[in-house]
């Protein structure tokens, strides 16, 4: 914006001024639009954080809206925390992320590596099958899978989370990792091979270290899956000892006259904080991961 006054003194005249001022206007419009977008997107969050620190009486006053509570109280956190054993549900949510995440990462990396950098008959056709599997809704296989797990006596244990994960049951991850591995230059692995490195060595010493951003992205995605997941929990983690945060929150959410909104918001804040921290530190992997994962095909 400062550009407007300085360019006016220059002899170049109208053209230069025109371009400069048009840019200034464009930037101002961009700022306004970005601000509007952020206000709309962040309003629910501001409301959540605000209400979490309000007393019951403050919550009841709806007009004018108080975005920043005065005075600030922590009673919602204290009372909400006491309603159930949140640490127990947190532990189970972490278990779910680990029990699904670790075996999935192992099996999918291996499969994706084979698809990306090894020659074997039928690899193209199998990859096409993998891409089609990405597009089949989970609900299609839901019931038979459950019956199968029940027959095996696995319902009520963590095995329904672990066993399918050991078998690379995440076609999207196999696809994304394969795209990533394919983009790693062959020169590196050729050089290593000349130095006497075997396939496993190339995989372990060259491909995996270079894939750190995409693997970090997968960890972020699986953790946030565990924090969001409801259907799997409803079927397989029904037992009180295995319930996750989402299931615990389900019993906490309600629309009644006597709903403890403040406590509901306080517990939502607590549940959201780990994900916000994870996203903050994981965000550079997002751009890197998506840019390099070759969605372009």
């Amino acid at each position: 914006m400062a550009g407007l006054s300085t360019t006016r003194d220059q002899g170049m005249g109208g053209v230069y001024l025109g371009m400069r001022s048009r840019r200034a206007i464009q930037h101002t419009v961009a700022y306004l639009l970005i601000a509007a977008m952020l206000v709309i997107a962040l309003m629910p969050l501001a409301w959540m954080f605000g209400t979490a620190f309000e007393t019951v009486e403050q919550t009841r006053i709806t007009v004018p809206i108080q975005w920043i509570p005065n005075p600030v109280t922590f009673e919602n956190y204290v009372k909400g925390w006491a309603t159930r054993d949140w640490l127990h549900y947190l532990r189970n949510t972490v278990f779910l992320a680990v029990f699904v995440g670790v075996p999935t990462m192992l099996s999918c990396t291996l499969a994706a590596y084979a698809f990306a950098r090894m020659k074997f008959p039928g690899s193209e056709a199998l990859m096409l099958l993998n891409i089609s599997l990405m597009l089949i809704p989970d609900q299609v296989t839901l019931v038979p899978r459950f019956v199968m797990m029940a027959r095996m006596g696995w319902v009520g244990t963590w095995l329904p989370a672990i066993i399918p994960s050991m078998l690379a049951l995440n076609p999207a991850m196999v696809f994304v990792l394969r795209q990533f591995f394919r983009a790693i230059p062959n020169d590196l692995s050729d050089a290593a091979r000349i130095d006497g490195c075997h396939d496993l060595g190339i995989f372990w010493r060259i491909v995996l270290p270079l894939s750190r951003p995409i693997l970090a992205l997968q960890i972020v995605l699986i953790t946030s899956w565990a924090w969001n997941e409801l259907l799997f929990a409803l079927l397989y983690l029904k037992d009180k000892s295995m319930q996750t945060l989402t299931l615990a929150m389900q019993g906490f959410i309600g629309i009644r006259e006597d709903t403890a909104w403040g406590q509901m918001m306080a517990m939502s804040v607590l549940m959201s904080l780990p994900m916000m921290v994870l996203a903050y530190y994981g965000q550079r992997y997002f751009t890197e991961g998506f840019t390099l994962s070759g969605i372009k095909g």
């Binding site: 989402t246 929150m249 389900q250 959201s272 996203a279 965000q283």
Partner: peptide, 22 residues
């Protein structure tokens, strides 16, 4: 701005559900 724009999407489903109901 990019960081701020990502924040709402990081709220877990249960938290988002609670806020939306409210």
């Amino acid at each position: 701005f990019r960081t701020l724009a990502i924040v709402p999407g990081t709220v877990p489903a249960a938290g988002a559900a609670a806020v939306s109901v409210f």
